[in-house]
């Protein structure tokens, strides 16, 4: 408990976070590159085709990881929003701002790959069922968060408005997750669940698992990298940043 509490207090200092996060960003980046390379080559090139869908099933190796991480990124953002509103932690607001572009791209990629997959299997690019519509709402939430921050000039007001939107938008996450169970949809139920073994053989789900872990590492690397830049930008008036710049002339 003591270690966690100390870590929590230290998170209040962007300078401390900047100092420790460099190696982590690199490590996550390398791990992501390795996992995604192996996962994609294995999944797209060597995994067996599906007995019904043939090769078009391979879109799963991009579609499922991006869709999962898009929702996880939103949950991290919701948590950051809550921390900002209750504890007023500067780093939480920076995290909130830094996650938006990544989450937005992942949601867009999941929707795009879903459409490309839908055409050969369902017979339609887009269907307004509960899963696809709630995922589209997630994309609009990301776009809304991006626009809201740009629209409010005063940084503190902007950060609180974004935090409220991020926290309230969390309601959409269980709707996405359970949409295929609560309503009749064209989208099939979840491929991966924590409670049951995967509904496909290992040579099909192993590359998918690698890509899922890989895309989480990519998320961590992207978030840490962006956070480090954001810390320098926002703290550019402080003496530690100026000292850092003076000791490392570009």
């Amino acid at each position: 408990m003591g270690v966690l509490k100390e870590f929590w207090h230290r998170l209040g200092s962007p300078r401390w976070f900047y100092a420790i996060s460099g190696p982590w960003a690199v490590a996550f980046g390398l791990l992501a590159a390795a996992l995604l390379l192996v996962g994609c080559v294995w999944g797209l090139g060597f995994a067996p085709p599906d007995y019904q869908q043939g090769n078009s099933f391979r879109i799963i190796y991009v579609h499922v990881p991006t869709a999962i991480v898009a929702q996880s990124a939103y949950m991290v953002m919701g948590a950051a929003g809550l921390i900002l509103l209750v504890w007023r932690m500067k780093l939480a607001d920076m995290a909130l701002a830094c996650i938006v572009p990544f989450g937005m791209s992942m949601t867009a990629l999941a929707l795009f790959t879903g459409a490309v997959w839908g055409k050969p299997t369902w017979g339609a690019w887009w269907v307004w069922d509960a899963r696809t519509t709630s995922m589209l709402v997630l994309l609009f939430l990301y776009i809304g968060l991006y626009a809201l921050r740009q629209a409010i000039p005063r940084e503190e007001t902007a950060s609180r408005a974004c935090a409220v939107l991020a926290v309230v938008g969390m309601i959409n996450i269980p709707i996405i997750k359970y949409s295929v169970d609560w309503w009749l949809t064209l989208h099939q139920p979840a491929t991966f669940t924590l409670t049951e073994p995967p509904s496909m053989p290992p040579e099909m789900w192993l590359p998918l698992a690698l890509n899922v872990v890989g895309v989480y590492c990519l998320f961590a690397a992207n978030l840490l990298g962006r956070l480090r830049v954001e810390i320098l930008r926002r703290e550019s008036g402080t003496s530690w940043v100026q000292q850092l710049v003076r000791s490392n002339p570009a």
Partner: peptide, 18 residues
């Protein structure tokens, strides 16, 4: 006027399916 196919979450290689 339109027919769409719904597929499930079970995927398998052709040799296993047989």
């Amino acid at each position: 006027q339109e027919v769409l196919a719904k597929h499930d979450e079970n995927y398998m290689p052709p040799e296993l399916a047989g």
